[in-house]
């Protein structure tokens, strides 16, 4: 079913109040024809897993500005895996260059830092989703 829109869950995990970027990404993906299940602030990885299951989502987008990315992003990947969900995790927000390799190693699909164009956001999400099918 190529005409089924991509469904993506967008969330911020943990204690982190910076949701402007995530809201922007939500709008970018909406305007690219995606169905964005927006969770917003202060989510837990357990809750995101439950939402991915209920919403039958194709991808998870996390935005991190609380310097917890090395802990929480791999935990998100692991939580999805152990629930049997083959769903890519796309990471945005502030991620220092020296952490990228470790995060990719832990199973994060894509990292989109500050300055990423809207086109790149959409393309990365599409590629991450189609590469899993």
């Amino acid at each position: 079913m190529t005409d089924t829109p991509i469904r993506i869950v967008l969330a911020k995990i943990g204690f982190d109040g910076h949701d402007r970027g995530l809201r922007m990404v939500a709008r970018i993906l909406r305007d690219a024809g995606c169905e964005v299940i927006y969770l917003g602030l202060r989510q837990t990885t357990e809750n995101v897993v439950a939402v991915v299951e209920q919403e039958d989502a194709d991808a998870v987008g996390l935005s991190m500005h609380n310097a917890q990315h090395l802990t929480l992003a791999p935990k998100m990947v692991e939580s999805l895996r152990s629930a049997g969900l083959d769903v890519p995790v796309i990471l945005g927000g502030v991620v220092p260059d020296q952490d990228i390799a470790a995060l990719m190693e832990s199973g994060v699909a894509v990292i989109l830092g500050p300055g990423t164009s809207a086109e790149d956001v959409v393309r990365s999400v599409r590629e991450a989703v189609t590469s899993r099918s």
Binding site: P5, A26, L29, R30, A32, G33, C34, V36, I37, L39
Partner: peptide, 9 residues
């Protein structure tokens, strides 16, 4: 665009 923001949650 056919896209949607599903924000009830």
């Amino acid at each position: 665009t056919g896209g949607a923001i599903l924000g009830d949650r």
